[in-house]
Amino acid sequence: MGLRILFSVVKNLKHLTIPLSHIKLATNDFSETYKICHMEGSTMYRAKLYHHDKGNHSSKRYNTVLIIRYPFGDEYYTEMDFLTEIEILTSGVKHPNIVTLLGFCIEAFEMILVIDNISNGFLGDSLENIDKKRILTWEKRLKICIDVAHALNYIHSELDDQKMLIHRDICSYNIGLDENLGAKIVHFWRSVFMPPNHEDQALHLELVGRQNYVDPEYMNTYKVKRESDVYGFGVVLLEILFGRLANGQIYTNEGEKGLVFVARQSFYTGTLDEMIDPIIKEETVENSFVLNRGPNKDSLHTFIAIAHQCVIKTQDKRPTMKVVVNELEKALFFQVSHCSNFILSMPRSNLFDYLS
């Protein structure tokens, strides 16, 4: 599909078009100064740019945004993929934990999306960076997981007109973190809408997604269901628990078959605790001046149990995202209650120092 045809398809979205000249001015002609990362062929920039205000076609605002520049004519990311992402993000898919499309540019062999600023980068970055990972206390990790779970539950079962969306590429690098570490799902170009009233059926589609996150039943049969997203999310839960990405060498050395295989074996042998991120384990050290003191036992066990259910090999045995949300919120409740009880049990003199 050429740019002319592509543009004609989105002609009803003219209010979202942003001139290339504006984007070049904002990024100083795509200067390295504004570049934040290069991923899967796309290059991301952070800059201040005029764009239409959310939900208001007649109003514009000037603020910091994320600019994603895709290569035109690339086999990996095609014009149809670009169109798919625009269509999905302008089709009524709106949720606080799903990125908002602020505008796009199709001009001079450029394909560019402008989305919410993700000021704290991607979850994958935080799990690879020791300093960023230390900020992610157990409670903050639970809240990130709950944010993503709510977004997945929304696209799986709460869209209007009986629609259901399958993301097909849930992974730590498709989860952005805002200034408050709130999580937002990004990158919908591999996503597909299921026909109405087909929520319990499967689509037969070509295999896409990152190897370490792909649903094994989808991989073997090419049948994709919403439970395929549940599996990918289960891998993310394990990454957050262990503080390592699924492609880490520790999971592939000595003939190991990946994070899920190692986690599953450890779950059955009762040695999973040995794999937990030492950073959150350290939070459990008695220290009356640290509010988040690490995983409460009930919180941790609830989290581990639901993560294990999410990565079950068979699609139909995995929980729905509604169940996942409930279990993660239960884990957060145990954790918050644990911290609250700790505060209330402290001597009054120590409590003043603790809260000051």
Rank of each mutant, 00 (worst) to 15 (best):
M1L: 15
F7P: 07
V9S: 15
L13S: 06
S21H: 05
L25K: 11
A26C: 04
S31C: 11
K35M: 13
C37E: 14
C37Y: 04
C37I: 07
M39N: 12
M39I: 08
E40P: 04
E40N: 12
S42D: 07
Y45R: 07
K48C: 09
H52T: 14
K54F: 11
Y62H: 06
T64A: 06
R69D: 12
F72I: 08
E79I: 02
T100M: 06
E107C: 09
I115R: 01
D125Y: 01
T137M: 00
L142Q: 02
I146N: 00
H150M: 01
L152M: 12
L165M: 06
I166G: 04
D169F: 02
L177D: 00
D178P: 06
I185M: 13
H187E: 13
S191G: 11
F193K: 08
M194T: 03
M194N: 04
P195M: 04
H204D: 14
E206F: 09
Y213H: 15
Y213G: 15
Y222H: 15
G232C: 07
G232K: 05
L237T: 10
E239T: 10
I250V: 14
Y251P: 11
T252W: 15
E254A: 10
K257C: 09
A263T: 14
Y268T: 11
Y268K: 15
E274N: 14
M275G: 06
K281R: 15
E282S: 11
E283H: 05
K297H: 12
T302A: 05
A305V: 11
I306E: 03
A307N: 12
R318F: 02
T320D: 06
V323D: 03
V325G: 01
E329M: 00
F334Q: 01
F334R: 01
P347S: 05
N350L: 14
L355N: 03
